[in-house]
């Protein structure tokens, strides 16, 4: 830092008030305070501000008011339109219904069963089934879905107000358009995933474990137990995977997610301290190349890296660089030379 007077800004003053400033800054501030009585008033105000803001209980949250208002006015417009078209003698009864539901307790989460019954009861549905091909589909709410081979996705032609429910058998990659007032729920039979707006993958082939991998944002991965109307859930955030084994009590966080979970959807390989022996196996499988090493110790090196849509050449270069190795390509075989790593020491 230089010694011009601009050094003394609100940030430094705050650190000083919190006792985090070093001696040098402290002396500088002392000089600054002495130079002008307005300066000490500024510091007093800052201190008061810090104390006053700390008294706010519950603390403020960073909400986007513009967005929230836009959201709710769209919802109201839709509601009004629906209402106008059905204005008849039932109108009185409708309002009484609303009044009762608002005046009693306002229930947000209706219990997934009720939601599902409502949805499946009266809405025209669209079904997309794939066999040999991966299909890309954009839903009416802007959500993008990539449906893997041999899978089936069912959803209403238009989502009803307040919820978005789709059914999945097989595997699909979701890029959900964010809408806090209409949670997006993927019903994968024995387990379900609820989100507000995120990117994630669900794999739910019949008779197999249900696997959820999150690329962005956060999802609630849950199962609904029929006997006590309760849900058992885990929250997964970006980079995490969850698993639900048929017959088990609840979904769990997967400790070692597979590096290639998302490869089918967006050519992502995500390694977390994965030994190169496994890394090479996957690259050979997906890129149709061969890898060999001049020194077995190389295979013990543990790689932590994410590759998205990278060509094999680039991946190999990055691996070589990470561990100080040399790589050359001859006749379709990548050959790694160098010292490698000793076990447990990276």
């Amino acid at each position: 830092m230089n010694q011009n007077r601009q050094d003394i800004d609100e940030n430094l003053l705050l650190q000083y008030l919190l006792g985090n400033a070093d001696d040098e800054s402290g002396m500088k501030i002392a000089a600054w305070l002495n130079a002008d009585s307005r300066n000490s008033k500024q510091l007093d105000q800052l201190e008061a501000l810090w104390l006053e803001t700390g008294r706010l209980v519950p603390p403020p949250v960073p909400v986007d008011l513009q967005k929230a208002w836009k959201n709710i006015s769209t919802r109201i417009d839709k509601h009004e339109k629906m209402h106008a078209s059905s204005k008849s003698t039932t109108i009185g009864r409708r309002y009484i219904y609303y009044a009762i539901s608002a005046a009693a307790t306002v229930i947000l989460v209706l219990g997934i069963y009720i939601v599902m019954r409502l949805v499946t009861g009266r809405v025209k549905e669209v079904e997309i089934a794939t066999n040999g091909l991966v299909i890309k589909k954009t839903l009416t709410d802007g959500t993008k879905i990539l449906i893997n081979r041999n899978s089936k996705l069912t959803c209403p032609e238009n989502f009803p107000v307040g919820n978005r429910l789709v059914k999945l058998t097989g595997e699909a990659f979701f890029e959900v358009a964010r809408n806090p007032s209409a949670p997006f729920v993927v019903d994968a039979g024995i387990a379900k995933v609820k989100v507000l707006g995120t990117v994630f993958n669900v794999s739910a082939y019949p008779g197999k474990d249900v696997l959820v991998t999150v690329s962005e944002g956060r999802v609630l991965f849950f199962t609904a137990s029929a006997n006590n109307n309760d849900t058992l859930s885990v929250i997964l955030v970006a980079g995490m995977s969850g698993i639900y084994k048929p017959g088990s009590a609840r979904p769990e966080i997967l400790k070692n997610p597979l590096p290639d979970n998302l490869f089918w959807a967006n050519r992502t390989l995500e390694f977390t301290r994965t030994p190169l022996s496994e890394v090479f196996k996957l690259i050979e499988q997906y890129y149709g190349v061969k890898v060999s090493v001049g020194n077995q110790d190389i295979l013990d090196c543990q790689l932590s890296a994410t590759f998205v849509n990278d060509p094999a050449d680039r991946i190999m270069d990055i691996i070589a660089e990470s561990f100080g190795l040399n790589v050359s390509l001859t006749n379709g075989i990548y050959y790694f030379k160098g010292n490698g790593c000793t076990k447990g020491n990276n």
Partner: peptide
């Protein structure tokens, strides 16, 4: 939660 409450208020 808040949006739901506000919406119900409007609807009712």
């Amino acid at each position: 939660v808040v949006q739901e409450v506000m919406f119900k208020l409007w609807a009712g």
